[in-house]
């Protein structure tokens, strides 16, 4: 009697916990990408990020000749790929940047502008830091000066 009560309680508890956990379990499949707000969220973060960059006197001059809509789409794609959104991105970072003379200071300024935009869109810190951690080693390819 007491055993079956305990059993029923356990099943009830298990059912409850599965119900409570399942929305998170679904999110976990796309890792940090969903914390950026999936496609719409990533679009908004990148749009703001580029606006920050173009308004940043430290680095805006690097983008004088850039095709901003193309760059925007490319960054959304890259960040989506890096954060587990299932996109493909196979541009060669070294080749793209080799003639730009990017300095370490410019690289850091860009990272700051990205941070500012992620902060403004309320991206959780671990998701922000995961993207930064994936972008940071690209310093070796991007900074040529």
């Amino acid at each position: 009697m007491s055993f079956s009560t305990l059993g029923r309680a356990l099943i009830a508890a298990a059912t409850l916990s599965v119900t409570a956990v399942s929305p998170y379990a679904a999110q976990a499949d796309t890792s940090y990408y969903s914390e950026f707000g999936a496609r719409p969220g990533m679009n908004a973060v990148v749009k703001d990020f580029l606006a920050n960059v173009l308004a940043d006197p430290r680095i805006s001059a690097y983008f004088t000749n850039a095709n901003i809509p193309v760059l925007d789409a490319s960054l959304v794609n890259q960040f989506c790929m890096l954060e587990g959104g299932g996109c493909t991105f196979n541009e060669n970072m070294k080749a793209i940047h080799q003639n730009l003379g990017v300095t370490q200071a410019a690289f850091n300024a860009l990272a700051e502008d990205l941070q500012k935009s992620m902060m403004a869109h309320g991206v959780p810190l671990p998701a922000q830091n995961d993207l930064l951690a994936k972008l940071a080693p690209m310093e070796h390819d991007i900074v040529t000066k």
Binding site: P124, L125, P126, A127, N129, D130, L132, A133, A136
Partner: peptide, 10 residues
């Protein structure tokens, strides 16, 4: 420094 260190913090 681990940028995505403990609990995803630096």
């Amino acid at each position: 420094v681990w940028l995505n260190g403990i609990f995803g913090h630096y």
